[in-house]
Design a protein around this nucleic acid. Structure first.
Lengths: 241, 241
DNA sequence: TTCTTGTCACCTAGGTGTTAATAT
DNA sequence: ATATTAACACCTAGGTGACAAGAA
């Protein structure tokens, strides 16, 4: 069995509508896809890999005025279907289970001609990450058993929209939200704020007191409270008089 | 068989008398011990590891006035004998052979109570790195064959003196060398200069034109020429009038 | 308009020799 | 005297979102 790490963080992003940047050179995911594994044969070899499947056959665009995603037509032609093998593959079950498995080398690109082995996605399309565990069958005729030698795990909270620049980014010129309930965005917190608050590499964009959140950083409590607090009074806030 | 990478660089250091810094927290080696492997069974599992054995039973000290190492007595009590497993171990022969194997995670310490798994050495003692390849025998009674299931490789040019601060560092107050031929140091270039010239992380201490050495950086020619050139006129130079 | 690209300041994370202070 | 330690400026290497400019 597999347990998704940082599920609480994934849930927060998912509530806002997760966006993942894609670039020509390749961009890591944040949150990073990380799992804990259980119940493997400690002595057997396994390959761990990920791929990404379209959630639907649609292309999207972001409506700033309503702060929501709209269908913008049928999906663009499918990108080359690639998989990302965890670089430690193959390894023994014992090795995989003894620590969190992190896919932090995985990068997303929108370059159809990418030759760095990155995952190729269409911008403005929705994707579902999938995680696969493949048992390396020592038998000579292992191809015959290919069907029973792998297992796939899907965590719906890791779905995201691929973008070249954050869309759920700032309010439109109207600076208020009319229909909050039908929006993917259920609060005033924007994707970029949550990324800045939770990704250590974006610390340069934090505007809160740096001495503030070590105190709030308790087990079970995500270090996002200050970001939430600040999100109460932006120009987009529906509670603004 | 095994081929030492960067042999030319190791040779240069060895001519000067290689020194490796040891610290409480652990310090990497430079040059890094790196090898290419040949003739393994691509499908078999191997463990790769290193250890360090004393070259002799002596303690040394560095005589600044003669710029040479002197015996300072019998060796201190032996340090806990540790080994460093390459972190990719175990892995298939094919995986080991397809690229250079680099022991850049290996760290040296003088802390006898180290609990980071680093290699513990006595400062001011000489050591010989050793490289071991262990075949992971799939047989049940593999312990019986332990003797024939490993192979050890020693490259004498990788010998070094463990130090807490560089010794072959600068000339003493006399600022000349009396007996160059009996010295380990066969030219005016000092260990620190060679380290600074060849270790990218020490680039901050280079005083040569930064635009200088990309031009000199051709295959087979080490990027040390400017360091050599500058070493012709220091205060220690025997050709000084 | 809408989307994409490249550059940038600002981070994380960690490897250098230097230097001054401190042991021993 | 000699050897060790800790703080430090300066690097490598690379991951952030912001922003301005460009493309469709």
């Amino acid at each position: 069995s597999v347990q998704l790490e940082m599920k609480a963080l994934w849930d927060e992003f998912n509530q806002l509508g997760t966006e993942m940047i894609v670039t020509k050179a390749g961009r890591r995911m944040f949150p990073t896809f990380q799992v804990k594994l259980f119940g493997m044969d400690p002595m057997a070899d396994y390959m761990l890999l990920m791929d990404f499947v379209p959630v639907d056959d649609k292309r999207y665009r972001y409506a700033f005025h309503s702060s929501s995603w709209l269908v913008a037509g049928k999906a663009d032609p499918a990108t080359p279907g690639r998989v990302h093998y965890h670089p430690d593959s193959p390894a023994k079950g014992a090795q995989w289970m003894k620590q969190i498995v992190s896919f932090d080398k995985l990068k997303l690109t929108n370059n159809l001609l990418d030759d760095n082995g990155h995952i190729i996605l269409n911008s403005m399309h929705r994707y579902q990450p999938r995680f696969h565990v493949v048992y390396v069958d020592p038998r000579k005729d292992s191809e015959k058993y290919a069907e029973e030698n792998f297992k796939t795990f899907v965590f719906e909270e890791t779905r995201f929209t691929a973008v070249t620049a954050y869309q759920n980014h700032r309010a439109g010129p109207a600076s208020y939200q009319v229909d909050l309930s039908s929006s993917n965005c259920q609060c005033g917190l924007k994707i970029t704020q949550l990324k800045i608050a939770s990704n250590p590499f974006a610390k340069g964009f934090r505007d809160c007191d740096p001495e503030d959140w070590p105190r709030n950083h308790r087990p079970g409590a995500l270090p996002l409270m200050s970001a939430f607090a600040r999100s109460r009074n932006p120009v987009t806030s529906p509670t603004q008089p």
